[in-house]
Simulated scan of single mutants.
Amino acid sequence: MTDRMHPSVHQHATVPATARPLRPGRTLAVALLLPLLLLTVLPAARAGQPDGPVSVTDDTGREVRLPHPARRMVALYGAFNELLAAMDLTGRIAARTAADEEPAAIRHLPVIGTHMRPSPEMVTAVAPDLVLQMEGRREAGEAVEGLRALGIPVAVFRVGSFDELFGVLRRVGVLTGEPDRAAALEAALRARLDAVAARVADRPRPTVFFEVRHPNLLAAGADSIVTDIIARAGGRNPVTAQGRVARLSEEELLRLNPDVYLLQRGPMNPEPEPPATRPHYATLSAVRNGRVLGVDEARYSRPGPRAVDAVEELARYLHPDVWAPTPATTAPTAPTAP
């Protein structure tokens, strides 16, 4: 404990002659209260959290520097809330967007607008020391610059693969002063991915098409987290167009003729018509063979911890034989006494 932190050590170094010694009961009370006072004065030290400046470079190449680890955060992209929750840092989330209700613990928080158009006034009102945003369309960039103009630090990240997701996780660990929590979460998620990889390593890889939206068909592109999910689950995305999403014609889909068709359900594709009832889709191999699977948009298209759940789910669907439970062995029957 330094003198700088407790200047009163020098100011009251001597005890007045008229002061009476503490009675044993008071001595015990002071001894019990002192640790509580120190914990109140030094909350960062109590948690093992560094209290000095922290900085990272975000995925736009900008340095994000904070005078101390972030304690009040606003995520303009919901997956970052899930990432913070998985690090057990839900208590540091100060607000949410209108569309984000996961984890359930953030549903009572103030709403600051939408992912693309947050209200600067509402964001300022919750006094964040860090805002997290996903790199995306022009509108998202404009919102970021508006918040920075108000003096609010904003980190912008790009996630199109698990390696990029883990890179974001490590930097969030730095910005929150919790690198150990970030490392532990990364290790746990990687272990689950490795377990899937070991099971599907020698399996044939079916082509897996991912419908982002229909009509005006959009598919998962080569640079999306979905493509990495498919690959790690033991499949292959036949769409090779660059970008997170790719616009496809029905003719191109028929040419690709995927083995498996994943039908996303969520805000981007709220009520998709079953492919078997669409004109021309009935000829697709996936439809003819009943290999159409409806999946949750939040799990597959939102690059966060639940993307690992998506890998496990899809691997079981693509390769059910390697996930079959091991038959229970029958215990030998004890010989009966003669």
Rank of each mutant, 00 (worst) to 15 (best):
E164W: 13
L83R: 03
E312W: 06
V123T: 03
E312R: 03
E139K: 01
A282K: 11
P332L: 09
A187Y: 12
G48D: 09
T57D: 09
T176Y: 09
M5Y: 08
R65N: 04
H108C: 08
A187S: 15
F209C: 00
G141T: 07
L150G: 06
V123E: 03
S285E: 14
L83W: 02
D58F: 07
G136V: 02
L175D: 08
A337N: 12
R203T: 00
M134D: 00
E121K: 07
P305S: 09
H280C: 04
G304V: 05
R306Y: 11
E312S: 05
P272T: 03
Q264C: 12
V111Q: 09
G113K: 07
L32S: 03
A337W: 09
A45E: 14
I152P: 02
V144A: 03
E164H: 11
E82L: 04
A241E: 13
A155I: 01
A328V: 10
E178A: 12
L42I: 01
L34H: 06
V226N: 12
S161Y: 08
V239N: 06
T40E: 15
L263T: 07
P103V: 04
A105H: 05
P320L: 05
E186I: 13
R117Y: 10
Y281R: 01
L28P: 00
P204R: 07
G167S: 06
P50F: 05
T240L: 14
I225W: 00
R205P: 03
D228T: 06
V144L: 06
L83C: 04
R171H: 14
E211W: 01
M134P: 00
D59E: 10
A86H: 14
V126D: 06
L132G: 00
D194W: 03
G290Y: 01
E211Y: 03
D129F: 03
A149D: 13
R199F: 00
F166E: 06
T40W: 15
P24W: 02
T326M: 06
L293P: 04
T27I: 13
L263P: 00
A140E: 12
A31C: 09
R92S: 15
A328E: 13
N269T: 00
E139P: 02
L165K: 01
R236S: 11
G294I: 10
D194M: 11
E135V: 14
R23V: 15
R72H: 10
Q242D: 13
A13I: 08
P21A: 13
A44F: 11
D321H: 02
T277P: 00
V172K: 03
D259Y: 08
Q133P: 02
R117L: 13
V15L: 13
F209Y: 15
T57I: 15
T97C: 00
L84G: 07
E142I: 14
G235E: 01
P327I: 05
I106N: 06
D194S: 13
R316V: 08
L189W: 08
A13H: 08
R265S: 10
E250M: 10
Q264D: 09
A95N: 05
A140Q: 12
R158E: 15
R72M: 05
A104V: 15
T283F: 01
P275A: 00
G48A: 11
A85Q: 06
S249F: 09
E82T: 07
P258S: 06
V131R: 05
R107Y: 04
D163V: 10
T27L: 14
D129A: 00
L169P: 02
A276V: 10
